[in-house]
């Protein structure tokens, strides 16, 4: 149990570090680095905790990304930076790189295998499983992070038109 918690914390801390690394690549303002780290940490914690409780990776990515999307709007008003600064870097560590790699590996093997080999069916299975998991994770993180932002944005637009 203790070991699992330490492992979870370790992975979450690395998620936070990855978020900050990408934030620096995107040149985020210096004052927001700490906030981005904690958001990346929180996103990793939520995602891997749910995976530990046997929730599917697609659903757990959606929940973690929605958390980032929902919290970045009030945070933007508090720290005075637009929400994109907080919402994009923390979800980058959720990109399903390993599934993309597995998909590519299977496609490559499939292409170079001679016709009639029964293993081709196994490879088709791998291509579909990994490819669609990757696709659904990508869709769920983009929906999770952008939908709350779009829903909460109406307010500021209205204020602006009234002016």
């Amino acid at each position: 149990m203790e070991e699992a918690i330490i492992k979870l914390l370790e992975v979450s801390i690395w998620s936070g570090i990855a978020a900050v690394g990408f934030g620096i690549l995107f040149n985020i303002p210096r004052k927001t680095i700490l906030v981005v780290f904690f958001l990346g940490f929180a996103a990793g914690l939520i995602k891997f905790l749910l995976i530990d409780f046997k929730v599917n990776i697609v659903l757990s990515s959606l929940i973690a990304a929605s958390f980032i999307g929902i919290i970045s709007s009030p945070l933007a008003h508090k720290v005075h930076h637009p929400p994109v600064v907080f919402s994009i870097p923390p979800i980058i560590p959720m990109i399903p790189g390993y599934y993309a790699y597995e998909t590519m590996l299977s496609i490559m093997n499939f292409t170079f295998m001679e016709k009639g080999n029964p293993e081709r069916v196994v490879l088709i299975d791998a291509i579909f499983f990994n490819g669609f998991t990757m696709l659904f994770i990508l869709i769920s993180i983009t929906i999770g992070v952008s939908l709350p932002l779009l829903l909460s944005r109406k307010e500021t637009v209205k204020k602006n038109i009234g002016k």
Partner: peptide, 20 residues
């Protein structure tokens, strides 16, 4: 940010990904 800071930060991000 200076180029070397970006290099180091993104490399740490890569290592973090690998841990994930």
């Amino acid at each position: 940010y200076p180029k070397y800071i970006v290099l180091i930060a993104v490399s740490f991000a890569g290592a973090g990904f690998c841990n994930i």
